[in-house]
Design a protein around this nucleic acid. Structure first.
Length: 568
DNA sequence: GCCGTTTTCGGCCCGACTGTTTTCAGTCG
């Protein structure tokens, strides 16, 4: 533990130093913070097991930051950061969270108007003091007022599951005005949450796309409106940037705006080493354009195959080895986690079966809640048997294999919420934690390990229990959980429900390295939710999973070897 | 503060847009 906390300290220190006019160091801090944040291993483990030298293996971490990490892990604080904090008013960092206000202007506000935080800024705005400052005018006052308002409304990152449909709607709307349209950025990389939506267009009449864009019915405010770039804020609270790109640079621009920033920095460094220059306009040797029309061409000229967008995180995808053949949505043969009206779902068994069938699936596991989940109308033994009759009936009618399954709660002591005589009749079980989230880490870890050791546990459901933007994962030693799962040949779920995406991409990556197998599921509570599979696949691809890592990419025959209680 | 077949010192992405200012600084992505 501690990676996120330490990264947060680095970010804070970077902001404050920038306010003080310190050059470069803030960038270095942020770079290190990003690396530490996305690390699979805990910095405390690294220090304990391998020592300080190993900390410096983290990209962007050198002697200085390594010693700060050591101090932080030892004492929970970093003296140097404390000093920086003390040298500035406590509320000053908040100012930088405002749209359009950066370190230079914030420093000026502090120096000339003694603005020490958001409250001060509000007062200064009210008194009309800002326009007297050099570099400020009426317009900047107005913008700050709006930024302040927006900030107060609270701004969380939007879930992938909300942003993607929104972007698709906008693309459909813009299609008549452009020859080519793509969304780029974190959305294209299928990151679990999205800061803003980036859209690229190629058009013979750029002004036409721009006019249409700012007239999109969901637009609340136009933030910028130029010849090649415009930005709007949608009513849903997310910013959308649109850029119009000429055909000859379209691929380079798509590459550039897809990111990630870290991936691009690494790729540009590789280009630079070869005496080339990569920008959103193309790959250049001197003035000569070598590539730009397509992404593939850009990567090829740099000696790489087309790297899937989901892998572009500078996690080793540019190391030169051939990237793995990532799992695709069309590889999926079934879904192993779905609820029906028997428990807390809103679609009947038959509706679920029909929806699964229409996706071309061979099978669907019906996994309603176990008896203890009263709120979710968990199934008693009798109701479960009733359900099995229904499954047999629908199975014949619809022509899709319905597995007798259950999502079984893992109780506080690690036992499963059905007696053995029931468990052995279930073809597949998803075992999940639904209560007792606040256990100490050691106890929680033991609880999960005990469940994994149960011979009737097949799949560990939403393994960390997190809800994006709402609930932190429970404390558990996930590395040990993954090791045990591999040892006991248990399957890890990658739950594609937009609020869960659990396992996360980083966890999937770590577990895959240990040789784990995965179930990409939707945790559907309605027939339409079966469509969440694309989010599960997106996270799986971010975790470098191949078709071979995913059990429900297997045909029925292969699946039987994974789940021995499955009937013929 | 980090990093290195350009460098152990001197770089560190760079272009679009905005607002305020008559040629540019600040912010953002």
């Amino acid at each position: 533990m501690g990676n996120r906390e330490f990264a947060a300290l680095l970010y804070e220190a970077a902001d404050l130093m920038e306010l003080q006019g310190i050059d470069w160091k803030p960038q270095a801090y942020r770079k290190a913070a990003r690396a530490i944040e996305s690390l699979e291993r805990d910095i405390s483990d690294i220090l304990k097991q391998s020592g300080r030298k190993e900390l410096q293996e983290i990209p962007g971490v050198g002697e200085g930051i390594a010693s700060h990490i050591e101090e932080f892990l030892r004492s929970g604080r970093v003296k140097k950061f404390d000093e920086v904090r003390k040298s500035l008013p406590p509320g000053i960092g908040e100012l930088l969270e405002l749209e359009g206000l950066g370190p230079k202007k914030a420093a000026l506000l502090l120096k000339k108007l003694r603005v020490r935080g958001l409250a001060d800024l509000k007062k200064a705005l009210g008194a009309g003091k800002l326009r007297s400052l050099e570099g400020f005018g009426e317009k900047s006052e107005e913008n700050l007022r709006k930024a302040l308002e927006l900030h107060e409304r609270g701004k969380e990152r939007m879930l992938l599951g909300e942003a993607l449909p929104l972007a698709e709607e906008l693309l459909d709307y813009l299609r008549p005005h452009a020859e080519r349209l793509d969304y780029a950025g974190s959305l294209r990389r299928m990151q679990e949450t999205i800061g803003d939506i980036d859209i690229l267009a190629q058009s013979g009449r750029p002004s036409g796309v721009m006019e249409a864009f700012i007239a999109f019915p969901r637009v609340e405010r136009v933030l910028a409106h130029g010849a090649t770039k415009s930005s709007v804020l949608l009513r849903e609270g997310i910013q959308v940037d649109l850029r119009v790109i000429p055909a000859g640079s379209y691929g380079a621009a798509l590459q550039y705006f897809t990111g990630s920033k870290e991936h691009n920095v690494a790729l540009r460094a590789i280009a630079a080493k070869r005496g080339l220059r990569l920008s959103e306009y193309g790959l250049f040797k001197g003035e000569k354009l070598l590539a730009g029309r397509s992404e593939e061409e850009v990567y090829r000229k740099l000696g790489f195959p087309l790297i899937p967008a989901e892998m572009r995180e500078d996690r080793g995808e540019l190391a030169g080895t051939k990237p793995p053949e990532l799992v695709e949505l069309r590889d999926m043969r079934g879904d192993l986690h779905a609820h029906t009206t028997f428990s807390d779902g809103i679609s009947a068994v038959e509706e679920m079966a029909l929806a699964a069938k229409s996706k071309g699936y061979e099978y669907l596991a019906i996994t309603d809640h176990s008896q203890a989940e009263r709120i979710a109308r968990g199934l008693s033994e009798e109701r479960l048997e009733e359900q099995w009759k229904e499954l047999s009936r629908v199975e014949k009618r619809v022509g899709i294999r319905l597995l007798r399954g259950a999502e079984i709660s893992i109780q506080n002591d690690g036992s499963l919420d059905y007696p053995e005589r029931v468990l052995k009749k279930l073809e597949v079980t998803v075992c999940s934690i639904h209560s007792g989230f606040k256990m100490p880490k050691e106890k929680m870890t033991e609880r999960i390990l005990a469940a994994l050791d149960n011979k009737y546990c097949d799949i560990l459901g939403h393994p960390t229990g997190r809800l994006l933007n709402r609930r932190a994962p429970y404390e558990a030693d996930m590395q040990r959980v993954f090791e045990e799962a591999v040892e006991e040949r248990k399957i890890l779920e990658l739950d594609g429900h937009p609020e869960r995406l659990d396992l996360s991409d980083a966890h999937a990556l770590a577990a895959r390295k240990l040789g784990a197998k995965f179930s990409l599921s939707t945790d559907s509570h309605a027939a339409a939710h079966l469509g969440y599979m694309r989010f599960a696949v997106g996270q799986a691809r971010r975790g470098w999973l191949t078709k071979g890592d995913v059990v429900n990419a297997l045909h029925l025959k292969g699946l039987r070897k994974v789940f021995p209680r499955m009937r013929d």
